[in-house]
Amino acid sequence: MDFWLYDFMRQAFLIGVIASIICGIIGSYVVVNRIVFISGSISHTAYGGIGLGYYLGFSPIIGATIFSLIAAIIIGMIGQRAEQRPDTVIGITWAVGMALGAIFVKLSPGYTADLMSYLFGNILTVPRMEMWYIFILSAIILGVVFTLYEDFRAVSFDEEFARVQGLPTSILNLILLCLVALTVVILIRIVGIILVIALLTIPAAIAIQCTSKLHIMMGISIILGICFTTGGLIISFFLDLPSGAVIIMVAALTFILAVGGNCIFSKYRAPRPGYKQNAKIKSRP
């Protein structure tokens, strides 16, 4: 247990737990809404903001927040109009964000050493200020989800019905995408821009197989997320490997095991020819 002695490790565990809570909640909405690639686009667009932060000399994480929020609003607004294909807009936003990032980084004076930590994450080197920033974003996300839980669920399940019931569905969708953007900003520090979608969706994708209730799905996702970040962190500490990548590998292996296990289990459970479905019920004459 000597990793517990290091201050940076304790802080990393704390951030991992907070991020897992947010990730489990928002990730569940992402998975049930099937907006995994919208989330991918939002997170990659954040790279433009990180580049801009370097170039103009303010905190890259603030730049990431601004850019991912803009991406969320663009995708949300255009996705609601039928004239454009949403997938095209998602792809273009994705690429433009990365391109802007590359240009800004090249223009930036000096050495941009920790750029890799934004691309692949480094939970061990989060500055104190950024840690507080993550906590504030988490509190905002939790507050919004707590107030709008039922509304989000209704819009995710059957948007047309929600609209007939008088819910402002366009605004709700936009708010949800903005929450995804803020979640992405939190996760960038942990697993990096490129790996965000995996951490956002793997816990929820496993959890959806276990339950038919959204809040239980969120609960399972949170627990899984905590296991993945904590487990990945410990493994990366002992093997001296990049923490973000190890966290994703732990999550992915669990996902493969869960899917595989589910296949075998359902095969075992499935009725076979000759199997009496209602063996206990006496057939009526």
Binding site: V32, E150, D151, A154, D158, E159, S212, I216
Partner: peptide
């Protein structure tokens, strides 16, 4: 019905959504 077959929701909660317009406050 325009909903996703895999959505984690049971019949009770789906019918409850019919009360969205009538609920007082944020929850049912």
């Amino acid at each position: 019905a325009h909903f996703d077959q895999d959505f984690p929701i049971n019949v009770w909660d789906m019918v409850l959504m019919g009360r969205l317009g009538q609920r007082r406050g944020r929850f049912y």
